[in-house]
Design a protein around this nucleic acid. Structure first.
Lengths: 149, 149
DNA sequence: TACAAATATATGTAGATACAGATAATGTAT
DNA sequence: ATACATTATCTGTATCTACATATATTTGTA
């Protein structure tokens, strides 16, 4: 639906103003879709983001900072996100031997299983994204990258 | 910058997966820019959104539900957002005579002045969006609208 | 070596958010 | 008129978030 209808605003000052709003709205739309997907599994969008980053590292440990660098939301309080994941026994934390300030994190089997289970519901999520062709999706990706300069 | 570099992920499963991430990242990017713009004024993104909706209504009262319909983030707890704005004496709330369930809200002069003051800093915010031409911005808007179906 | 600066992570906190449920008024069917 | 459903808003709550600050360790350098 046109953003004008979504938020009942029939005119924007200019195309950039409209773009900001449209972008915020669409970001929130996707956030909510993912949150809904994750709800049955009892984890948040940010926790899922961390789990997938960790899975990408296989069985290698990775520091809290390195996780932060890879997160979609850089502002996240990764320390406490990890706390939650440790509580749920999805990941493990240990102190790095060579630099004892550093906490190293690794995903464990239960975490891998959870990510797998969530990914099995991905078709459901993806069904919301059928309106764009692969070509249009690529075009959109390029414009988003360009937007951020 | 390319999304791959922003989150240090060098490959995505497909263009749609990448688009979801890119969209979330860009949404968060804009949210943070606006939050930074608003910080000196002591209001949040959501509160600002409500204030601008109310300004659009001029001196007419509008219901909490109608505000919600017009918000970028529909999930917001508008009741409590209004509480904050009333505390700050930026808006007023009164019970609707004809339907006593309904709360009607209107922006007052202090609120209008605040929105004006914030808008005077808009050039600063807009300076982050110079990388797209008007034409590209329009193209992006159209693709976002199409994305949401 | 000693000491300041930088780094990596954790913690305290006020406030925001999501969601469930409560409250109250109104609409509707009998 | 009565009872039940619906609507509009508010409240309780647990959790999350942003931001400032604290702690611990390492690095650079005089």
């Amino acid at each position: 639906m046109e953003i004008e209808k979504e938020i009942k605003q029939n005119k924007f000052k200019d195309e950039i103003n409209k773009l900001m709003i449209n972008q915020l709205f669409t970001g929130k739309w996707i956030t909510n879709l993912i949150a809904k997907q994750l709800k049955p599994f009892g984890i948040t969008n940010q926790q899922y983001n961390v789990l997938r980053i960790l899975r990408g590292q296989k069985s290698n440990y990775i520091s809290v900072n390195a996780i932060s660098d890879r997160m979609i939301d850089k502002m996240s309080n990764v320390s406490r996100l990890i706390d939650k994941l440790v509580d749920k026994k999805l990941v493990q934390r240990k102190i790095n031997k060579d630099d004892r300030r550093q906490a190293d994190i690794v995903i464990n089997q239960k975490g891998l299983d959870l990510v797998k289970a969530i990914e099995d519901t991905e078709d459901d999520l993806k069904s919301n994204f059928k309106s764009l062709s692969e070509e249009e999706a690529k075009q959109l990706n390029d414009l988003l990258d360009k937007l951020r300069g």
